[in-house]
Amino acid sequence: MGRKNYLIEGGSGTGKTAVCNELRRRGYEAINGDRELAYQGNPETGEPVGGITGVAVHRHHLWRVDKVRALAADQREALTFFCGGSRNLVKFIDLFDGVFVLEVDLETLKRRLDQRPEDEWGGRRTERDLVEHLYQTREEIPSGGIAIDATAPLARVVDDILRRVQSTEPA
């Protein structure tokens, strides 16, 4: 089987990190893009920028395109899942064989954000306001992604993703 790359996307608080950790626990290659690929950069040029604070951090949250391309080209694993969000997704979305979008209702989102400490993204009021705005507008969610009900228990969410991946594989 050839290598396949999948993106697990969704707004803040939808469960991307939890899904990444569960995929890893099950033995899949899963990359937490927000922790392993991200940096603060100019969304137009990709040049790193420093001194960004507050909600501007979100707008400058980019993934290292060269690293994403190298990981996607690596054929050692049959499946690789990239989990997280990036403002420069347009520069590498073509590398993915499929995109899964984790979705939750607003009440679940607010409950999850309530559990975040203030030093974690979405823990401060201004960040929460932006998260809720992005939830309402869906302006950063890639179109054409496969919606996944992320209000279900984590094991079921991951089972659903894996079932959908397997259904696209040739028999």
Rank of each mutant, 00 (worst) to 15 (best):
Y6S: 07
T151P: 12
V157S: 01
L23P: 14
G2Q: 13
G41L: 04
T45V: 15
G123V: 11
H58F: 13
R164W: 12
E36Q: 14
R59F: 13
G122I: 09
Q166C: 07
L109V: 11
N42C: 10
G27V: 07
T80L: 01
G98I: 04
A38D: 01
E139A: 03
K4H: 13
G98V: 05
V90N: 15
R138V: 02
L62M: 12
T53H: 04
I148D: 05
R124K: 15
A171C: 00
S86E: 04
D119I: 03
A147V: 06
E139H: 00
G98A: 06
Q40T: 13
R125V: 07
L37S: 12
F92G: 00
K110L: 08
L109R: 09
L113F: 13
V65E: 11
V55S: 02
T80V: 07
R124N: 08
R64W: 12
L130R: 08
G27C: 10
L154E: 09
V57D: 03
I52Q: 12
G51F: 04
M1K: 09
R25T: 08
A78S: 09
I93V: 12
R156M: 13
T137Q: 07
E22L: 10
L154G: 02
R35D: 15
H60V: 03
V49Q: 15
R112Y: 04
D159R: 09
W63D: 00
Q136H: 10
V90M: 07
R59M: 00
Y28G: 03
D114M: 14
V131I: 07
L89S: 01
Y135D: 05
E36S: 10
L109P: 04
Q115G: 06
G54Q: 13
T53I: 15
L7D: 09
R24M: 12
D129T: 02
D94W: 00
T126E: 15
